[in-house]
């Protein structure tokens, strides 16, 4: 303990009681912070936004759990971060793959750690019907992919992320890897036009190889009400071990923003405009994917 700190006892007691008077050794400070965190969590004294986003839980707990996967397992590299605006509404549009939507989680870590913005993803309604998954998704800032929620988030200046391929993308067979699927009805484009926010094309390379889907169990999937039940080289043969994703090398690239503020907000109701934008964005992403895949090289370096 340094000489100065021995005067700690003269700090007014109420200031000291607040716990951050700087009088306690740094270890104690951190302990108090931790205790305070635990107490507030236990007492329900924390704020969530109207979508159910629990900022604190996400930053301090859930992202911490994902980070090792992001850093060490997939070794994710990001490119084109300058294209993500530092503030204001924007719509990130990305390809979806990997059988299990791990790419959504990795995109979230990338956005938080590298672009320093929380990303609000729009998810399928199935997610919100399932126990656990639904509320975890809300707590980490995501919400249902519907017009109202997309418009509301963009109006509030949030960074919104969508995977327009949906289940068609994430559940496609391994042989179709890196082939973009159909982009739905372009609802995401309409939302961006209404809000006048830029669309940021995003290519994610690496997710395709984590659970190579070589077959599926259709009858069982239908019985369970799931969109598909995959067969991979490891699942279901190895049981729970088959759930471990293969450690492929990942790259995430953000492309140049596509501006939508130059067209009239009413154009959101014009199918031709919406489809044009949708096709344009889709082409950009496909091209970025092809380039990025070449740039990455083997999925499991240095092996193959």
């Amino acid at each position: 303990m340094s000489h100065d700190e021995s005067y700690a006892t003269v700090v007014p007691i109420d200031a000291a009681a607040r716990g951050r008077a700087g009088s306690a050794p740094p270890g104690d400070d951190r302990l108090i912070e931790l205790l305070d965190f635990v107490r507030r969590r236990l007492a329900g004294e924390y704020e969530i936004d109207e979508f159910g986003f629990d900022h604190e839980l996400t930053d301090k707990v859930l992202l911490e759990l994902l980070r090792p996967l992001y850093r060490h397992w997939f070794r994710v590299e990001t490119l084109g971060l300058d294209n993500v605006p530092a503030e204001g509404g924007a719509l990130v549009v990305a390809n979806h793959s990997g059988t299990v939507p791990v790419d959504a989680l990795m995109l979230q870590v990338a956005m938080h750690d590298e672009a320093h913005r929380p990303v609000r993803l729009l998810g399928a309604d199935l997610v919100y019907e399932l126990p656990v998954l639904g509320h975890l998704s809300r707590k980490t800032g995501h919400t249902l992919a519907c017009r109202e929620d997309a418009d509301r988030l963009l109006r509030k200046g949030e960074l919104v992320g969508v995977f327009p391929e949906g289940f068609k993308g994430v559940g496609k067979p391994f042989r179709d890897r890196y082939k973009l699927q159909r982009f739905g009805r372009g609802g995401f484009v309409a939302s961006a036009i209404r809000a006048g926010v830029p669309i940021i094309p995003c290519a994610i390379v690496g997710a395709e190889e984590i659970y190579p889907k070589i077959g599926e169990l259709r009858t069982l999937a239908r019985a369970l009400g799931l969109p598909y039940l995959p067969v991979t080289p490891l699942f279901p043969w190895l049981g729970p071990l088959g759930l471990i994703p293969l450690p492929s090398k990942w790259m995430i690239e953000f492309g140049e923003p596509v501006r939508t503020d130059e067209c009239d907000p009413d154009a959101a109701d014009d199918p031709a405009t919406v489809f044009n934008f949708t096709d344009h964005v889709r082409e950009i992403i496909q091209q970025r994917l092809d380039d990025l895949r070449l740039r990455r090289g083997p999925a499991f370096p240095p092996l193959f």
Partner: peptide
Amino acid sequence: DADGGPLAALIGRIEEEFGR
């Protein structure tokens, strides 16, 4: 009380002790 029950209250008390 809206103090979050006995465990949270206990931790609150420990915190105060540490703060002193």
